[in-house]
Write a protein that binds this DNA or RNA. Sequence first.
DNA 1: CGCCATTTTGAAGGTTTTCAATGTCAGTGG
DNA 2: CCACTGACATTGAAAACCTTCAAAATGGCG
Lengths: 241, 241
Amino acid sequence: MEPRRSEKNNNYSEIKCLHCLAKAHSFCKCIAQDKLPDFSKISSQKKFKDRSYIFLQGEKNDYFYNLVQGNVKIFKVFEDGRIQILGFLYPGDFFGLYSSKNFSYTAECIGEVTCCIFNHKDLDAYLDKNIELTKHLLHRTTNELTLMQDRVAIIGRLSARKRIVNFFLNISSQRKRIGWQENPIVLPMTRNEMADYLGLTVETVSREISKLKSEQIIKMIDGKQVFLNKPVLESELSNNS
Amino acid sequence: MEPRRSEKNNNYSEIKCLHCLAKAHSFCKCIAQDKLPDFSKISSQKKFKDRSYIFLQGEKNDYFYNLVQGNVKIFKVFEDGRIQILGFLYPGDFFGLYSSKNFSYTAECIGEVTCCIFNHKDLDAYLDKNIELTKHLLHRTTNELTLMQDRVAIIGRLSARKRIVNFFLNISSQRKRIGWQENPIVLPMTRNEMADYLGLTVETVSREISKLKSEQIIKMIDGKQVFLNKPVLESELSNNS
DNA sequence: CGCCATTTTGAAGGTTTTCAATGTCAGTGG
DNA sequence: CCACTGACATTGAAAACCTTCAAAATGGCG
């Protein structure tokens, strides 16, 4: 059967998933090639500028997002202006959550960003037709939950030094997983963002990094590139001081 | 069609879901009455004694659990013995996670406990046949994720006093949700467990509670029952001191 | 009553934050 | 080219908060 053109959507809408750059890492990777044009129709792509907000904490949630290109940070803001960053997202990560409540966090672009946007009802209807996709989404969400539990434990129980060491090691293994070199690592975020991610202040982050440098456990080039002495860093995490 | 007795399982296995006490709050609540005998066959029920471990952090995960009766706490243990409690579970809560990795936390019984135990493969096969159930599990997991994100923000950015105030208010609304009186609340856990849940020490928890008492913001009977001055507690959370 | 676990309180100490100042670096315009 | 600017990072000193160690109080239970 030849794909019929929708009155509402242009042709691009039907084929965009066929050559999606992020498909290999996205929740939709389990969709068969021949079903892609159909799936393609329920979402639209949108570009966002650097530092623009994709949505704000508290807004009504009607959409589910899949990051195609660029980076996004999601964070909560408190009444007094304090910030807690929940995550730095990469292509293939989804956010906005599959539920019909209000957004519990703000999503902001780091650099230029492209997202796939799904209306809840359309996605919901599609999930009814594709159990494989639903199960995959469940697996990914479960995985996110496990990671967030790790972070509760890290922020709740580790010293500033250990949080930073753990952060560096995490970035390293994350890079390894997606095929980048695991050492040195590059810190794409500012010290302030690191602090807001780890539940610390900039000053503490800066001081602890300085200590690690002076102890030769890490080496830095221009503050962004970090060479890790991994064995020492790993022993740092398990020692009881 | 009359339900046929399985050779392997006893008759109880097929009917236990029909009069399950926790069904109304469980992930399986969306299963139609006539499908229950079939669903019933893929799980077995098990009882656990007070303070026994259902599984340990690091063990291989082959099972998915649904709490039927009693309370369970799930927590992470660090090398130095520090503990971070991730949650206090109530009937209808599931745990053990739907994935085939190792357990990332320990599950321990608080009092006598009854659980439904699902083998991953069996549950997985059943999910293939019931998209409604899969979607429901996805919604519940998404909800858990949102709650865990809240906790990252609370532990990362709130003072001891605010964490405790927030904790009390959460218990209150949780009680309201399941139809119990929302004020006074009852604290089913020890001060130590509260501390391990909030990323604090017992002493800090005790001191902050004492302060709240002396300021008349809460009143206590025998250290377990707490009368909350809710308006004041809520303003506590939003003030900037 | 006496025991034991839990909770509370006290005092000292340590870690992290706060406030303030300085340093670094890339981009801009004289 | 170099000084100026503004954002980001580092460092210092003092203060605040939370923890640690220690002791006393409370409360349930044999």
